[in-house]
Nucleic acid binder design. Structure first.
Lengths: 248, 248
DNA sequence: GTACTGGTGTGGTCTGACCACAGAGCCTAC
DNA sequence: GTAGGCTCTGTGGTCAGACCACACCAGTAC
C-alpha cells in the first residue's frame, strides 16, 4: 500500500481532507474522538493529535474539552487565523520581506476599493436590491476613529478594522483572509513605525481625511479615484513611517 | 506567569517565533533536538512535536532523521507549501469559495503583469543594469508548451509553471507563494474543467497564443495591455470550462 | 588504504497513564 | 414535585517511557 509510505500524521490529514472533499465532513460537523480516529486509522493517538494541531492552526477545526455536543473537534472554516500565523511566521523567518507584504497589500487593497466602486456603480444602475456590499460597517469605524481620546494603538486597531471592513464589504473570503494575514504579519512593524512619525496628531488627522476620501470615492462610484486614493493612502503612510521605501 | 496559561505546544511555538524575531534563529539554523527542547521549556516531547508539526506544514522547518549536520529540524522559509495546504484545505472545507479564489488570482496576476511591464519600461529608460526581472524562464516554459506531444496534464502543469514564473520574475515572495497556493487549491477543479471543454486542441492553441501575447505586452512595456490580456486570459478560460461564471 | 561494523543520536511512532473539564443523569433535601 | 447538588462518563491536554529506522562517525579488521 502506497498509503503506508507517508508519515502517520499525514495519513490522518489526508483522510480528513478526503472526507471534506467527499462531503462526508462539513463545517459544523464533529470529528470522531481522538482515540476513535486513532483506532480507525491504525495510528497512535499522538499522530492524530499532530494532524489535529495542524488543522487547528490552519483554522479548519476548533477543539473543545469536556463533554456534550460542543465537545471535541468541530469543523470550522476560519481562514483568517491560519493565514495570520503563516504570514507572521514567514516574516519572522525572513521568508516574506516586509516590503513584499506592503506591496501585496497595495495590490489587493486598491483592487478591493476599485471593485467596490464598480459595484456601487452597477448596483445603482441595474439592481439596487442586489446583495449587500454594505459599507455601513466601514462608516461606523470611521466615525469611531473621529474620537479624540484614542490611544495610538486603539487608533491603529480601528484603522486595521476599517481596511479589513472594505474587504469584507467586497465579500471575497480569500482577500479578506489574506489582507488580515498581511496586516497581522506587519503589525509589529506598524506599531514601531508610529514612533518615527514627526507628529502623530498631524498624521492621524491626515489618515482620517484620506479614509473619508476613499469611502467617498467608492460611494461616488469612481473606481479609478478609489484606486488612486488607496494607493496614495497606503504608500504614503509607509513612506512616512520609513517602514519601507515604496518604489515608483 | 501568564505564559503558563497557554497550551504547552503554544509555548513552544511562541518560543521559536520569538527566537526568529530576535534573530537567534535564522534560515539554515538547526533547532535543538526535540528532547532537549522539551526539557528546556518544561513541556513534554509530544507537545514539542505538535509545535514542530505546525511549523513544518507552514513551511518554516524541515525535519530530517538520522545523524550528522543535516539531521534534526532546520529552519527554512518555504511559504509555498504552507500556503498551498492552507488554501487547499480551506477550499475543501468550503471556507474559500472557488469563485473567490479565481477572482483573487485575477487581481494578483493582472497586477503582476502590469508591474512587469512597468519594470521593463523603467529599466529600459533608467537603469538597464537593474536587478533581474528575468523573463527568460517564462519564455522557456512557453517554448516547452509548444510541443505537440503533451498530455493535458502536462500542458496544464507547464501552464501553471508559466503563470508562476511571471510572479517569480516580479520577485514578490508573498505574491509568489499566494499564487502558488491559489493555483494548488483549485488544481482539482481545473483538471475537471478540461473535460468540459468543447475542444482541447482548440483551447490549448488559444492559450498558447494568449500566453505569447501577454509576454509580448510585457516586453513591449505596455502595462495596460498586459493587464487586459491577463484578465481576458484567465477569466476567459474559467468561463470556458464553466468552472465559475466570472462576473462583469 | 579499504571495507566493515558497532556506537550514538536523531526524528517517528506507539502505548499507557493521569489530569481538568463539561455535560448528563441521578439522587437527595426541601 | 421541584430545586439543588452529586457522581459518572467521555472529552481533549499532557506527560513519560519505550521501541524503531535511520544516518553518520569512529574504530577495527583485513
Amino acid at each position: 500500500m502506497t498509503v503506508e509510505e507517508r508519515r502517520a500524521w499525514e495519513i490522518v490529514l489526508a483522510r480528513i481532507e478526503d472526507d471534506l472533499l467527499g462531503g462526508r465532513l462539513k463545517p459544523g460537523d464533529r470529528l470522531p474522538g481522538e482515540r476513535a480516529l486513532a483506532a480507525e486509522l491504525g495510528v497512535g493517538r499522538s499522530s492524530v493529535r499532530e494532524a489535529l494541531r495542524v488543522l487547528e492552526v490552519l483554522g479548519l477545526v476548533r477543539t473543545n474539552v469536556g463533554s456534550g455536543p460542543t465537545a471535541g473537534a468541530i469543523i470550522v472554516a476560519l481562514p483568517g487565523g491560519g493565514m495570520s500565523v503563516l504570514m507572521r511566521l514567514q516574516v519572522a523567518a525572513q521568508g516574506f520581506p516586509v516590503a513584499d507584504i506592503v506591496k501585496t497589500r497595495l495590490v489587493l487593497e486598491t483592487a478591493v476599493a476599485a471593485e467596490l466602486a464598480e459595484a456601487v456603480l452597477s448596483d445603482a444602475l441595474l439592481h439596487p436590491d442586489r446583495r449587500g456590499h454594505d459599507l455601513g460597517p466601514c462608516l461606523q469605524l470611521l466615525d469611531a476613529m473621529d474620537s479624540q481620546d484614542l490611544s495610538e494603538d486603539e487608533f491603529l486597531a480601528l484603522d486595521a478594522a476599517f481596511h479589513l471592513s472594505l474587504a469584507e464589504a467586497c465579500g471575497n473570503q480569500v482577500v479578506i483572509a489574506t489582507m488580515a494575514g498581511l496586516r497581522n504579519a506587519i503589525e509589529g512593524y506598524v506599531l514601531a513605525g508610529v514612533a518615527r512619525l514627526a507628529s502623530w496628531p498631524t498624521t492621524s488627522t491626515r489618515l482620517r481625511a484620506e479614509h473619508r476620501g476613499i469611502l467617498a470615492a467608492i460611494e461616488a462610484a469612481d473606481p479609478a479615484e478609489a484606486h488612486a486614493l488607496v494607493h496614495a493612502h497606503i504608500s504614503g503612510y509607509y513612506a512616512e513611517t520609513r517602514l519601507h521605501p515604496v518604489a515608483h
